[in-house]
C-alpha cells in the first residue's frame, strides 16, 4: 500500500517546484503554467486526503479549483494577449509601468 504521506510529499514537491518556477521564470505564460502546477500540487493533496478518509468533499474542492483555474486561464491569457499587443513582449519584467 502507498502511505498517505507519500502523496502529501509529492504534493508538496509539485507545489514547491511551481513556486520556484513562478519566481524564476520571466515568460508570462510560463509563470501561468507554474501557477497551474501549484494548483495541481494542492489538488493532489485534496484528492489524496479525500480518498484516504472516504470523504467526497476534497474531490469537490478539486472541481472548484479546476473551475478557478479555467477562469484564471481565460482572463489571464486575455491579459497576456493584450499585454503582448502593446509591448510586443511576454517578459513580465517589461511590464513595470507601476514602478517608481
Amino acid at each position: 500500500m502507498v502511505p498517505l504521506s507519500w502523496y502529501l510529499a509529492l504534493s508538496a514537491a509539485l507545489f514547491t517546484i511551481g513556486a520556484v518556477g513562478v519566481i524564476v521564470k520571466r515568460n508570462a505564460i510560463a509563470i501561468f503554467l507554474c501557477i497551474e502546477l501549484m494548483l495541481n500540487g494542492a489538488n493532489l493533496a485534496l484528492v489524496a486526503l479525500s480518498g484516504f478518509f472516504g470523504d467526497v468533499g476534497g474531490q469537490l474542492f478539486v472541481f472548484i479549483v479546476m473551475t478557478v483555474a479555467a477562469a484564471e486561464a481565460a482572463v489571464g491569457l486575455a491579459i497576456i494577449i493584450s499585454i503582448f499587443r502593446t509591448r510586443e513582449s511576454l517578459n513580465v519584467d517589461d511590464a513595470d509601468t507601476m514602478k517608481l
Partner: peptide, 17 residues
C-alpha cells in the same frame, strides 16, 4: 515603503512566498 513596489511582478511573488 514604496521602494518595495518595484513594479516587477516577480519580486512581488517572492515577497508573497
Amino acid at each position: 515603503l514604496r521602494h518595495l513596489q518595484g513594479g516587477l511582478a516577480r519580486a512581488y511573488v517572492a515577497m508573497v512566498v
